[in-house]
Structure formats: C-alpha cells, structure tokens
C-alpha cells in the first residue's frame, strides 16, 4: 500500500544542525513494513535535514519549496489533494506527534485530516494490514503499557508514538541514490510573519521536583507483626489505595 511520511525541519539541540526527527525516522521504519518504497513529503525552504530520511529507508522525497517561516499547511494539503486525485492515490499518511523547528503545535496532522476528510489515529506503536482489503490495524500506546488495537478503513492519517520500534539504520549510499523531487509552492495568501507576537529567546525553566508521596504516620508502622498479619496489611493497603485487586477477601 502506498505510504507517505510527513517530515519536518528538526535541528540538533546542541549544534543547531538540521537532522531528521527521531519520531519521523521511526515513522519511516513503520512505513517500510507496509510499503517497499515509502515516499517522504516536506514543505520548507531546505531539505538538508530531511534528506537523511532517504538514508533511513524512504524510496523518494517530495519537497514543496515554501519560504522559510511560512505555514506548511496549504502547501501540504494542495500536494496531498493532487496525490489523492492522481492515478496512484496514497493509502496511508504517517507523521510524528508534532513537527519540529516551527511552532510545534502538533495540529498539522489534525488540520490535514479535517481538510482531506480522513480519519486520524494518534500514538501508533505498530501497524499492519488488516484482514479485509483497504483496512489497517493500528496498535496505539496507552498509559501503563496497555495497547488499543484499532482497525481503521483506509485512507487514514496515523501519528507515531516514541515507543514504536527504533528507526532503520542510516545508510549513506541509500541517501545519495534517493530521488528528491522539488515542487514550487502554491501562491501564499498572506506573507509569512517573521516572528510572532510575544516571541522571545527561550529560557529553560525547572520542572517540579518529584518529592516524596504519603508520609508515614505512627499508625502505619508495624514492628514485628506475624508474617500472615504483615501479608494481610500489605494487600489491604494495595486495595485501599486502588493499586490492585486480588479477588475476594
């Protein structure tokens, strides 16, 4: 099934060099399990970082050359509309949780889903084709190691969770051989705003300290109880606090 992976302009936090985002590299790995040559799609001014996606397993890369700082959404939606109208429409669009390097709201996949009228599923850790044709089985990561297995009708947009399998190893030759197709950007309605209102240099702020939880009270200290009594106390504490339930008492 034809798969497109959305790529963003991630930067190394230390060196500032452009690099592929880890989550998008994981998305390429998931896509490679469904499609022999998944295609990348990027809207931006430079392809230096995203071209490394070719080395991680992309079969080709489409770059819509929008000016730096411009909203990528119109360019992406116009490209995808053309792709869906073409003779080989894509079945699946994969992306990270949020693009890096821009405003990082994570809204682009949702707005694309709204514009193209596609279903969207978040936080996939595994995907495979369903039993029926034109369906996909997606495992979503949930809290505490649980998974939600959803069968969805294609075409669909799926975002990837960091617990997905690690990306395929990078191969320089594959990156050099990969084909990069450049497309002109559609005419923009409004010129790009250089900086937003209220934008300023980032200041790292400390997170809350993870301090101790419940304090030990005098009533909760038991010195030298019988082992059976101790076992009963432990299970009662677990059940009172709703950690686990172990059958009838």
């Amino acid at each position: 099934m034809k798969t497109i992976v959305l790529l963003s302009e991630a930067k190394n936090p230390v060196s500032g060099r452009q690099q592929p985002s880890r989550l998008e590299a994981q998305a390429i790995g998931l896509a490679a399990g469904l499609d022999e040559a998944p295609q990348g799609l990027h809207a931006g001014s430079s392809e230096e970082g995203v071209a490394a996606g070719l080395g991680h397993g992309l079969g080709g890369l489409d770059v819509v050359e929008t000016p730096a700082g411009d909203d990528p959404l119109p360019a992406l939606s116009a490209f995808l509309r053309r792709a869906f109208a073409g003779d080989a429409p894509p079945a699946l669009i994969l992306c990270g949780r949020r693009g890096e390097g821009g405003l990082e709201t994570g809204l682009v996949p949702y707005l694309l889903a709204e514009m193209l009228g596609l279903p969207i599923l978040a936080d996939a850790v595994a995907i495979r084709p369903g039993e029926a044709p034109e369906t996909l089985v997606v495992d979503q990561a949930m809290a505490k190691g649980a998974r939600r297995r959803i069968t969805v009708r294609l075409p669909a947009i799926v975002t990837v969770h960091p617990l997905a399998p690690p990306p395929l190893p990078f191969a320089f030759g594959r990156m050099r051989r990969g084909e990069v197709r450049r497309h002109p950007a559609p005419a923009a309605d409004a010129p790009a705003a250089g900086t937003l209102a209220g934008e300023r240099p980032h200041r790292a702020r400390p997170k809350l300290m993870r301090t101790a939880g419940t304090a030990s009270g005098g009533a909760n200290l038991h010195v030298g109880p019988e082992p059976e009594e101790a076992a009963r106390l432990i299970l009662a504490y677990l059940e009172d606090n709703g950690i686990r339930r172990y059958g009838p008492a």
Binding site: T135, A146, R147, R148, R149, I150, T151, R153
Partner: peptide, 10 residues
C-alpha cells in the same frame, strides 16, 4: 472509518 476497537491490557 473505525471498524473495531480492542483494548489489550499491559
């Protein structure tokens, strides 16, 4: 578009 939903506990 969603054909089935199943929750698999960890």
């Amino acid at each position: 578009a969603i054909l089935s939903v199943e929750i698999i506990p960890g």
